[in-house]
Design a protein around this nucleic acid. Structure first.
Length: 609
RNA sequence: GGCCUCGUAGUUCAAUGGAUAGAACGGCCCUCUCCUAAAGGGCAAAUACAGGUUCGAUUCCUGUCGGGGCUACCA
């Protein structure tokens, strides 16, 4: 038995696991061997049969289209080839094999194989999920709110998706650095500084600093629209700040401090932590030398007074992020890294940030969890890195917009953005009402814990169960829904397992692990539950590979459904022993997969609810 | 204008090129002397349109229509 040990230097967690093959891997290996002998040298070099979970269980648990895929190149009839393969495979220990339709090879996994795998999972801390073969150091850049502006619903996606990906990557064996690249140096500071000096209510600042700052910002913003000369005054404040004026620097630092305190409270509530908070201002000193360097190396040049990076002709025009077609001609859309007035921009900071992460963190990968509209920006940033000879797994993990009912960017009726804190408060409040209704006898302190876990879990799960690339319409009732395909549904399935285990006593699983007890699966819903449990090891890695948390969320929902269905049909504590202990084992593994899976999404489970 | 992206039940979302397109909410019908009914079992209901590639297309390609985004000194 082989064990692998991996130490996550950041988290200090040690994961150990037997290297256990997933079912499709195991079957694919045998299938490929059989194809090789059947086709006698005609099998294409490096060919590996693909085995996938069947969508329709009537055809079996897993299927392969290898015969259909190969039929043409080897000039055989797909059905005939599939049948020959099925004959050669014969009686597999793990599955019944059959041919169907246009040439599918179907595998129905035997109950004994599922039982064997359940025992393996029982003894494996990783529940069968293999560690990555290629551990990387990954910087994940997410959330990134602006100073002096509280987070609004628009920050939900980046914050929750980024946190889930960080958790997944760590679990898969990567070294992860989370970095909150806050907007602490933007042009909004001109207005904030002017407002601070002229409008700020000190008592309001002490009471609720972020609210006070926001109120000031909004008021200045409003006045600027009416009085153009005020805008000039704000710009002057910004110039003062950027030239190192002591008073303005002091105010600026206070703003950041106050904002960070507020943000940390909300992140704590969301159970999200960052290893670093290297905001835009952190890179200020790096910007001028960076631009100089790019000019010296001929990557950037002056144009209309600004310093720009143009296409170097590396890509075909249609793939070139610095070109756009206009009236049948390719026109340059350069990345501007220094304005004509000498100021630096978003792109400059991002280049410096990428540089720093490679140089100081020795990152192999940088993943940016940022909205889809910025696609071109990141293509340019990554392409400039390429021009400078910097390489790595750079990804813009994009997501769609949150829209209102009118399919325009989401705002409240009076045009305000909805603050993230309001969404959280509303969710927890709604959950609290349900707790009160369902569990009136629970101690008050516990009710509070349950309401928090349910409410916040509901928000996270609603976000993560959606395909990140599609836009979605914000709807209070859907986001905060507590029935159906939601976090509380999954939390409830875990609670049900715990209730069984509390009443039935702590089960003794050592008989299974030692091989003395026999795990027995016979009922349809038992086998189905075991089938779903096995698939955890297949789903988790691809969820990270594609940066698509919704795959894991959908899987966990399927698992909870399989469990609820099993729960209704198969009494555990009232059954007799080999069945009773086998069912208890299923319950235990279900609980572990649910808890681990949800923790990878950043959602807490509860013992009672 | 060009480029990117999306268009799936009444509504909100799923579906590595696979077989009869899944869920949830809402609607209708059942199930608590039984381990938590925040649950289970059932019914009705959808791939914008037109071509093409393929044994096989919601998925890939082309075009049309419709929504959103990007398109040099904001982030």
């Amino acid at each position: 038995m082989k064990w692998r040990i991996e130490i996550d230097k950041v988290m200090g967690v040690v994961y150990k696991s037997r290297t256990m093959m997933t079912l499709p891997e195991q079957i694919a290996r045998k299938l490929t061997d059989v194809l090789r002998s059947e086709l006698d040298g005609m099998l294409p070099e490096g060919f590996c049969a693909v085995v996938t979970a069947s969508q329709d269980l009537r055809y079996g648990d897993y299927q392969s289209n290898a015969a259909m895929a190969l039929a043409k190149t080897v000039r055989r009839n797909p059905r005939e080839l599939a049948q020959a393969v099925v004959t050669r495979l014969g009686d597999m220990v793990e599955a019944e094999v059959s041919m169907a339709g246009p040439g599918f090879i179907n595998f129905r996994i035997r109950a004994e194989e599922y039982a064997r795998r359940m025992v393996e999972m029982l003894g494996d801390e990783r529940l069968g999920v293999p560690l990555t073969e290629h551990p990387k150091k990954i910087v994940i850049d997410f959330s990134a709110p602006n100073v002096a502006k509280p987070m609004h619903v628009g920050h939900i996606r980046s914050t929750i998706i980024g946190d889930a990906l960080a958790r997944l990557a760590r679990f898969m064996g990567h070294v992860v650095i989370t970095d909150n690249h806050i907007g602490d140096w933007g042009t909004q500071f001109g207005m904030i500084l002017w407002g601070w000096k002229n409008l700020l209510d000190q008592t309001a600042l002490e009471k609720n600093p972020i609210e006070a700052l926001l109120a000031v910002y909004k008021e200045v913003n409003r006045r600027c629209k009416e009085q153009p000369d005020l805008l000039e005054a704000c710009k002057a404040e910004l110039v003062l700040l950027q030239s190192g004026d002591v008073d303005n620097l002091t105010i600026w630092k206070r703003c950041i401090e106050v904002t960070k305190t507020g943000l940390k409270k909300i992140y704590a509530q969301l159970d999200i932590r960052f290893d670093y908070w290297l905001g835009e201002s952190f890179y200020n000193d790096a910007l001028a030398p960076l631009v100089e360097d790019l000019m010296e190396r001929g990557i950037a040049r002056e144009s209309d007074g600004a310093v720009c990076v143009f296409s170097d002709g590396f890509h075909a025009p249609q793939d070139d992020p610095f070109l756009v077609s206009k009236d049948g001609e390719w026109q340059s859309v350069p990345a501007i890294i220094r304005k004509a007035d000498g100021g630096f921009l978003y792109a400059t900071t991002d280049l410096a940030t990428l540089d720093y992460r490679i140089r100081e963190f020795h990152a192999d990968a940088i993943w940016y969890i940022v909205g889809a509209p910025q696609e071109k920006h990141f293509k340019q940033i990554f392409d400039i890195a390429r021009m400078r000879g910097i390489s790595g797994d750079f990804r813009h993990v994009a997501f769609g917009s949150i829209l209102g009912k009118d399919r325009r960017p989401f705002k409240t009726r009076d045009g305000e953005t909805v603050s993230l804190q309001d969404v959280i408060d509303e969710a927890v409040e709604r959950a609290a009402r349900v707790v009160q209704e369902k569990s009136p006898d629970m101690p008050e302190s516990e009710k509070k814990v349950v309401a928090e876990a349910v409410g916040i879990g509901a928000i996270k799960f609603a976000e993560l169960s959606q395909n990140r690339l599609s836009d979605y319409i914000f709807d209070w009732d859907k986001m905060l829904s507590l029935t159906g395909d939601t976090a509380p549904y999954l939390q409830n399935s875990y609670v049900r397992v715990r209730a069984i285990e509390r009443k039935g006593g702590t089960p003794d699983f050592s008989v299974f692990l030692s091989g003395n007890g026999r795990m027995l699966l016979s009922e349809e819903r038992e086998i189905n539950l075991a089938r779903v449990l096995c698939r955890f090891s297949e789903i988790t890695p691809i969820t990270l590979d594609d940066c698509r948390p919704n795959l894991l969320a959908a899987y966990l929902y399927e698992l909870a459904r399989a469990f609820h269905s099993f729960y209704e049909a198969c009494p555990v504590l009232r059954s007799e022993d080999p069945v009773r202990s086998s069912r208890l084992t299923l319950c235990e593994i279900t609980a572990r997969v649910l808890k681990l899976g949800m923790s990878l999404l950043g959602i807490r489970m509860l013992e009672k609810m």
